[in-house]
């Protein structure tokens, strides 16, 4: 039996620490990071956009891991982690798309560009949405866990292929955006701040994932108790 109060205190404490760390990283990025020569101040959204994007793609790897675990170990705990992962992943793809769009307006001059990374994020968001509709439409139980795991596996494996194909498709149609910053040409100070923000985002995502997975397991437990109390 889990000690609920202790669990609550633990999640709250860790959450507070993570939020403080994340706020610090964002504050630092906004206040102390150097201005970009070409883009001025607007580039600072990168400190939010790039970590979200990486977290969004990372979530597909984590989904792959938990899906395989669910399939091989028949674990309902792993299944709730998979679902939590898709939910958190969906949130991060949405954040990435929104911030990418906001960033694109002043730098590329358009709200949307068929950039390989952005396009793949959009497809990932669609796939996550499909995955979530699929799992939510089924009654809880081992069958749902297995179906969701199979779908999660297919989606996670598809993402690199989709990325590759969209990248090729882009280079064939339009020249890559010249204004795209990032990569190794980046100023070392900017890069270290970006890494700081990235870590903060990973912790935040990890905490959300953990919270949601516990939440889903508790929901299942409550439902089970209700059935037994009938």
């Amino acid at each position: 039996m889990i000690d609920a109060k202790k669990q609550d205190r633990l999640t709250f404490g860790i959450g507070l620490a993570v939020l403080l760390f994340a706020s610090f990283s964002w504050f630092y990025a906004l206040r102390f990071a150097p201005s970009d020569e070409a883009q001025g101040e607007v580039y600072r959204i990168m400190y939010f956009h790039v970590p979200s994007a990486i977290t969004a793609f990372l979530s597909s790897f984590i989904l792959l891991f938990f899906s395989l675990w669910t399939l091989f170990k028949r674990s309902s705990v792993a299944a709730s982690w998979s679902k939590a992962c898709a939910e958190v992943g969906f949130m991060y793809t949405a954040i990435t798309l929104i911030t990418g769009s906001i960033w694109g307006r002043p730098t590329w001059g358009v709200w949307w560009e068929w950039d390989a990374r952005l396009t793949t994020t959009l497809i990932l968001a669609l796939l996550y949405a499909g995955y979530l509709i699929f799992t939510n439409s089924m009654a809880p139980g081992p069958q749902r866990d297995r179906m969701a795991a199979a779908l999660g596996l297919i989606i996670a494996i598809d993402i690199p292929i989709i990325y590759k194909s969209v990248e090729w498709w882009r280079t064939l149609h339009q020249p890559p955006s010249l204004l795209r910053s990032g990569g190794s040409t980046m100023d070392p100070e900017m890069r270290s701040i970006l890494f700081l923000c990235m870590f903060a985002m990973f912790f935040l995502a990890g905490w959300l994932l953990w919270l949601r997975a516990i939440n889903l397991q508790l929901q299942a437990k409550i439902e089970e108790q209700s059935h037994q109390a009938r």
Partner: peptide, 16 residues
């Protein structure tokens, strides 16, 4: 096997 809604098929099939 999941008795899912018909609309889900194209929603998953096309992005994949």
């Amino acid at each position: 096997r999941s008795n899912a809604k018909q609309i889900l098929y194209p929603l998953l099939y096309f992005p994949l």
